[in-house]
């Protein structure tokens, strides 16, 4: 997993609530046959139903199609971002498109966990603060901001630095690019010990 320390880049506003994982990474893309869809890279599927029309042509008003927001590194989103299916393709499609931070008031639980597993930062912030950031970026020339995970602040042109915090273990694993499986496997002896004891207590689970 790549390390996440300081991220500087364009933040695109998609302030709609309940953006689900089917919308983020649909299984079919408009204007393409299922066979063509299956062969597309995940980055091409990201938000495909919003990005393309029925002829697979770009929808010019969709935010990520606007010149200003192409190549966005972050999304500003509404509540419950990433609700719906468990598909990790939602996280992968964002990351493969260069987006490694989503700032929203709340997240779908599975998307939230999947994000950390892959080094994408799902940052919770109050909606009012997100709206302030979106407004400030709208006024700026470049829509660029900085997420500094080392110091725990967001730097947005025209605003005071905005502090944030996430659980320390999550922060450390992002900063160091730690792999969760490796972490779990350090406890292999304890897992085996647990199963040996538990087999005596709940034998029906293991029979």
């Amino acid at each position: 997993m790549d390390k996440f320390t300081v991220l500087h880049g364009v933040a695109a506003p998609m302030l709609m609530a309940n953006i689900n994982t089917d919308l983020i990474a649909p299984s079919h893309t408009p204007g393409r046959t299922p066979d063509e869809s299956a062969k597309l890279p995940l980055s091409a599927k990201m938000f495909a139903n919003l990005r393309y029309d029925a002829n697979a042509a770009e929808q010019p008003d969709f935010v990520l199609n606007q010149p200003r927001y192409r190549g966005a590194a972050m999304l500003l989103a509404g509540p419950n971002f990433g609700c719906g299916s468990s598909r990790e393709t939602a996280v992968w499609s964002l990351m493969e498109s260069g987006i490694s931070c989503v700032i929203a008031p709340s997240f779908g639980d599975i998307f939230h966990d999947n994000s950390y597993q892959n080094g994408l930062l799902p940052l919770r912030l109050e909606m009012a603060a997100i709206e302030r950031i979106a407004a400030a970026l709208g006024r700026s020339n470049a829509s660029e901001m900085t997420v500094d995970l080392q110091r725990g602040v967001l730097e947005v042109p025209g605003l005071e630095p905005i502090p944030f915090s996430i659980p320390e273990d999550r922060r450390q694993s992002l900063l160091e690019g730690l792999d969760q499986l490796g972490f779990i496997l350090r406890s292999e002896a304890e897992i085996l010990g647990f199963e040996a004891r538990d087999t005596a207590v709940r034998p029906w689970v293991y029979s």
């Binding site: 996280v91 897992i191 199963e195």
Partner: peptide
């Protein structure tokens, strides 16, 4: 509960999740 693919691999390998 539902899990993502990274966690599927963790359960395969460890039979445990954080």
């Amino acid at each position: 509960w539902g899990i993502g693919t990274s966690e599927v691999m963790q359960v395969f390998a460890a039979q445990a999740l954080v």
